[in-house]
Structures are given as structure tokens and as C-alpha cells.
Simulated scan of single mutants.
Amino acid sequence: MDAIFKALNDPARRALLDSLRDRDGQSLSELETQLDMTRFGVMKHLRVLEDASLVVTRKSGRFKYHYLNAVPLQEVIDRWIEPLLAKPAARAVIDLKTQLEGPSSMTDKPDFVMKTFIRCTQDALWEALTDPAQMGTWHFLAGGVRKEDDTYIYETPDGGTMMRARTLETDPKSRIVSTFEPNWEGGGAPSRTIFLLASEGDHCALTVEHYDLSVPVVPGEGVHDGWARWAAGLKTYLESGAAHRFNSMAGAGA
């Protein structure tokens, strides 16, 4: 947490975060033009933000793209503010119709990136992400999840289809590539997601990359808000064993 306050205690670093909030996924060259300092100076500030996990990066070809990661800030809010507002069982971090039959390309740039850390084993994280029974327990919005062949079908509470996710590629316990096919109004066109899992001793790092989005990524809304609630449910489930749906429409006991 000290690293977070250190990172925020500089106007240049706050300006970089503001820029990424307005337009995520910028390269060093793009960010460099916005500050009155050398390229090396901007790199040093970005390194501090990365060390605090406030910025995560994704390399594509010769370029490295930077993304705002809201998880550490949410943890700070949860520590001092959330207990004054509510007492959930656990509060954690801030979830193609076109055919994608061939191997996914790792040279394109994701539209959204989120990284979080969960106190669990890599096996447990993999199971929570691939077992439909578990997924239906912790998912913030789905009433249940079932699997048909290589496709996960997320159901609404009344039994309708909320979305589909067809598995395109897997590297057991470390990587999942799947479609993201929303069936709700305003969900946008089908897109693609990649989950990257890595063990770090007594906890795991989980990175979510979302590609080919047809809707804008606005902090605190839509895609951004959905993934934050998705991650909160997953983290709570794995760390406490208790299922809590972080759905804004659900009651405290949901």
C-alpha cells in the first residue's frame, strides 16, 4: 500500500493515470507527448506506477501498451471507506458470434486489461474458471452456467441465455482464450477474452485481456464495471469459500 501512495504523490504520475483513464492502452510515445519531460523521465514515472500495480502493460510487436489498473485503488477504498457503508462477507477487487476457428493472434492490442491477485492455488483458480458449477456460484450476474461441448452458456435467473463463451484455446492451468458473446441489450458485438494465470507462491496472479470490443471502455461503467464485479466474486469465492454476487441490483444477502 505504501507503493500506491508513493506513486500517487506526484503530479506527473497522476497526469499519466488521468490520460490512461481517458484513453486506455497508450504506448510510451503517445504518453510522452503529454508531459513536458524527457522520454527517460516518463519511463521512470511509468515504472513507479507499474511497481504499484496501478498500470499494467501488454507488449505487441515492438510496442508496449499501458493500461490503468483500478484494483489497488479499490483495495484502498475498501480498507477505509467500505466498512463504513456495508459489511459484505468479503469485499475484494474491483467479468464472436463471428467465427474464430483458427489460433488467436497475440500481436493485436487488447481494448481492456485488468490484473488482480488471489490467495489460492493455481489448481483452484483453474477449476473456478472452468467448472460450470463453480462459475454459476460466484459469477456476479449469471443465475447459472452450463457447458455444451466447448461452449459455456451463462443463464439469466429466469433460465434465459445471458451470454455464451466458446473456448478457442487452452494451455492447462495457465491460459484460456474464449469468445465473449453477450445476449443482453447494449452488450455489443461478439468479442474475445484471454485469461492468464500464474502462480506466485501462496497466491496467483490473474490477468484478463479483452479484445475486439465494439463498445467503449469507460471507468466505472459497462465493460470496466462488469469485469470489476466479476473479479470481486471470483476472489471472494476462492479466498473465503463464501459465494457473494457483486451485483448492484442484488441485495446484501444475494
Rank of each mutant, 00 (worst) to 15 (best):
R164D: 01
R166D: 01
T167G: 02
L168V: 15
L168W: 08
E169R: 14
E169H: 13
E169N: 08
T170Y: 05
T170F: 06
D171P: 04
K173L: 14
S174Q: 13
R175W: 07
V177G: 00
V177M: 01
S178N: 06
F180C: 03
F180R: 08
F180A: 02
F180K: 03
E181L: 04
P182I: 03
P182R: 09
P182H: 03
N183T: 10
N183Y: 12
N183G: 14
W184P: 00
W184D: 00
W184N: 00
W184A: 00
E185T: 12
G187I: 12
G188A: 09
A189T: 08
A189H: 04
S191H: 03
S191N: 04
S191M: 04
S191V: 05
S191K: 07
S191T: 05
T193H: 11
T193G: 11
I194Q: 13
F195Q: 12
F195H: 14
L196A: 07
L196W: 10
L197G: 08
L197N: 09
S199W: 10
S199T: 12
E200W: 09
E200D: 10
D202R: 08
D202S: 13
C204D: 06
C204A: 03
A205M: 14
A205R: 15
A205Q: 15
A205L: 12
A205S: 14
E209Y: 13
